[in-house]
Design a protein around this nucleic acid. Structure first.
Length: 446
DNA sequence: TCTGGGGTCCTAGGACCC
DNA sequence: TCTGGGGTCCTAGGACCC
């Protein structure tokens, strides 16, 4: 029993906006409330925040991510820069070639986090059911808020204006009965638009879009599907589910569901508001110039281990598995993991596990482009411990939490495992380590 | 084109146990 | 003696997302 009324109109952006809305539907399973989700996606988020700090940037081609001669990729590009073909994840050097007149700025993650939490707090005042899916996008369950905010589309416009008024930032909002559809809708509404997909019209909305628009379909899947003649979502809809399941397994089955406008597979199996404790914590570093110097490599590993340990303590979790990541000069990458007999959040335990893995697995003499330390199998407590180890561990825990406090006060690398390690190689470490480590060393030598 | 950093989820093989 | 099957844990790699 579907009781929505369509009242469709064209806007300047060609976006469909529907004025009336649906109430309830009877499903085969019985009486079931139709869900209404928003997907709120900030427009060119990093660039927009930078513009707030430096209005001169407004309207200009801007690339956030670093200097054009640095190793690295574009984190965000302004719409003016996108006109030259610049897009996120593109190497900075390539972006420079395409658009040399662009203004290249370093990213300020602290600023983006700050604005992200401002947006989050604002969204929370609108509906308590909010999931920040990443730094610049959120899902909101607004089912049953009609009395408060009015029908879905009106509510979305209200929220859209409120975000603009209180943060000076543009966003786009997709509205649908499934989060996946809401996400695709917000993308289609960009920039600065609102788009509601009327329940029942999901498949029709998705059909003309490239399969690539479906969350979870990337470059590789796009190519694999194209080899079967599948380019549009509508092509998928015409296929037998069993064929997709046979060909692509679980993923194919989820894909069939998505083509019909359902939340299926992977992340979309969670509900808004589900508990989301971190499943892994990692840090990695790409050297500005590849290095084969073991002392530099081990000092970097120590620094990464400290960062991981600190985040574990912040989240009050213990890691049972420590993984090392090595990327060689030719970009080939290996990972090697070791599981401990207990959970840890101690810098030196993480470090020695990672260091041993590196000593055992690194091709002798090889030059390294990237090092990473990854902690997983996270648990709420450390689990089984030998009686002998306990007192030492307790003392370490206290020492480390004291160090965390010192870092809070005096800066990230005012105390460090890494600094003790480097010894006479200090000068070379200087050049090769990430900037904050180098700074700390300089500071300590003043 | 000379390719960051922080995540999630999935697959697949082997060890090990019953 | 030449060979089952299921469950779980561990490890390695890869696709994908922002």
């Amino acid at each position: 029993m579907l009781v929505y009324r369509e009242d469709v109109c064209e806007t300047s952006q060609g976006v469909l906006r529907v004025r009336s809305y649906t109430q309830r539907t009877l499903s085969a399973a019985g009486c079931q409330t139709l869900k209404t989700y928003f997907h709120i996606d900030m427009d060119a988020f990093f660039v927009s925040v930078e513009e707030l700090f430096d209005p001169v940037l407004k309207g200009k081609p801007v690339v956030v991510g670093g200097r054009p001669n640095q190793r690295g990729v574009v984190s965000a590009a302004s719409y003016a820069a996108r006109k030259f073909g610049v897009h996120s994840a593109m190497p900075l050097r390539t972006a420079y070639r395409l658009c040399p007149q662009a203004i290249f700025v370093d990213g300020h993650l602290d600023r983006y986090r700050d604005y992200s939490s401002r947006v989050f707090r604002l969204l929370k005042t609108f509906s308590p059911q909010v999931d920040m899916a990443s730094i610049d996008e959120a899902y909101m369950d607004v089912t049953g808020t009609e009395r408060l905010h009015g029908p879905p589309l009106k509510a979305a416009h209200l929220l859209h204006e409120r975000v603009k008024r209180e943060t000076e930032l543009n966003c786009s909002i997709g509205v649908a009965a499934a989060r996946m559809v809401a996400k695709v809708a917000s993308d289609q509404a960009k920039p600065n638009g609102v788009l509601w997909i009327v329940p029942g019209q999901e498949a029709r909305f998705l059909a003309p879009l490239d399969v690539r628009k479906i969350p979870g379909v990337g470059k590789v899947s796009e190519k694999n599907l194209a080899a079967l003649g599948i380019r549009k979502v509508g092509d998928l809809g015409r296929l037998d589910e069993r064929f997709l399941a046979e060909r692509f397994g679980q993923w194919g089955l989820a894909l069939a569901g998505k083509a019909r406008g359902l939340d299926a597979g992977g992340w979309f199996d969670h509900e808004v508001g589900d508990e989301n404790d971190p499943k892994s914590i990692s840090h990695e570093h790409t050297f500005n110039e590849d290095t084969a110097d073991s002392s530099v490599l081990e000092a970097t590993l120590a620094h990464l281990a400290e960062k991981v340990g600190r985040r574990l303590r912040e989240h009050k979790v213990f890691a049972r598995t420590i993984q090392l990541k090595l990327r060689y000069t030719d970009f080939s990458t290996i990972t090697r993991a070791h599981s401990l007999d207990h959970g840890t959040q101690l810098d030196h335990e993480i470090f020695s596990a990672a260091r041993d893995l590196m000593r055992e697995n690194r091709k002798p003499g090889s030059t390294i482009r990237l090092l990473g330390v990854h902690a997983s199998s996270l648990e709420q407590d450390e689990g089984q411990m030998s009686l002998l180890a306990e007192p030492i561990t307790e003392r370490w825990r206290k020492a480390l939490s004291a160090m965390d406090q010192i870092r809070d006060k005096f800066g990230e690398s005012s105390v460090s495992l890494a600094s003790g390690l480097t010894g006479r190689f200090r000068e070379r470490v200087h050049e090769a380590l990430p900037p904050d480590v180098g700074d700390a060393k300089r500071r300590s030598e003043d």
